[in-house]
Design a protein around this nucleic acid. Sequence first.
DNA 1: TATTATTTGATAATAACTATCATTTAAGAG
DNA 2: CTCTTAAATGATAGTTATTATCAAATAATA
Lengths: 198, 198
Amino acid sequence: MTFNADKPGLRQRKKAKTRATIQKHALGLFRKQGYDATTVEQIAAAAEVSPSTFFRYFPAKEDVVTWDEFDPLIIAAFKSQPAGMNPIEALRNAMKSVFGSFGEKRITEQKERLALILSVPALKSRLLDQFFGLVQLVAGIFADRTGHDGNDVKVLNLAGALVGVMMAAMLTMDKNPDADFLALIDASLAHLEDGLPQ
Amino acid sequence: MTFNADKPGLRQRKKAKTRATIQKHALGLFRKQGYDATTVEQIAAAAEVSPSTFFRYFPAKEDVVTWDEFDPLIIAAFKSQPAGMNPIEALRNAMKSVFGSFGEKRITEQKERLALILSVPALKSRLLDQFFGLVQLVAGIFADRTGHDGNDVKVLNLAGALVGVMMAAMLTMDKNPDADFLALIDASLAHLEDGLPQ
DNA sequence: TATTATTTGATAATAACTATCATTTAAGAG
DNA sequence: CTCTTAAATGATAGTTATTATCAAATAATA
């Protein structure tokens, strides 16, 4: 039994590749034909896997769009902020460190993805669900840092407001696709940090 | 052609009754068997209508739980607050005036409904979707009152934070079912009004 | 009462899932 | 390298939400 946490075996690499392939073909078909007009069967055929396999990788059709690898990154970046820091500022920094490193191309991809999500009700719902999960996660981290209870009303409330602000930012992005996402989030969080003066 | 906006004809009364009947039977079955284990066919049979009719009244199975008449009431109450009032306070008052009039029984019903919604992913998503819509609605009303643009980032941001705080309140209610919903919302909005001190 | 517009029910089709089982294929032991 | 084990895949056959369509029933109105 060898210890190698860094280099995943063939099996793992293959899985990652399959997941990426399915997602790539799915997004391509969605762009061409629209989300609703594209069936899972078509996606599976394009990616050369069986529909069964599709559902093994993505429990629901929506997840093929909604799934991304950002959450754990943001969480990690958030946790690595200095202990005494204001939680809102900590989140600002975390967002900056994650999205700030993206290139032009990657940002454009993400903007397109967001536009697609917001244009399809089922996808929008799924995304919101993830945000909601994030409320609870973020609340838990706040609580850990401050020694408060994770179910403390004030903690949940702050986390809720944060998520609400992010929702607003997405809405703004949707209405104004050329905006700089990172700057927008940053400004919005700053606004919240200042107590939301009108 | 007679003008009678107040007394709906037989047709309208019947429709309202049918909608209520379907909803009542649906909620009853959900309580007994669970949401997923109850089919639309069963609901339709219990309510003595055809499945077609079910879908005419509720476009999706989820809507039979998620649908309520509160939004327009809250909006109206909000709009009727004095023009110069701080928007957060205005919302506090609106919530009070709508939910404050509820009896013990009605409150219990709503708490049960919330618990059901939060326990079923599909329902939770649907609810969050409504909240998302609310951000835009609330932003629009803020804008009207203050003369700002409804797409103004600060306006959207404030609306987002408000809605986020309401989401957090629901979460708290879920974890702590004995809490007083109205008092909780009130405290949370006050907290937001104070700039969310930790 | 006759006509018109709504509402309903029946029927059939689509497509997202779920469960199951046999087959293939990588990992690890010797 | 080969055998055994465990994981990943594909095929198959449901179930159920949802949509479209059309004919029958029923309320509104002239």
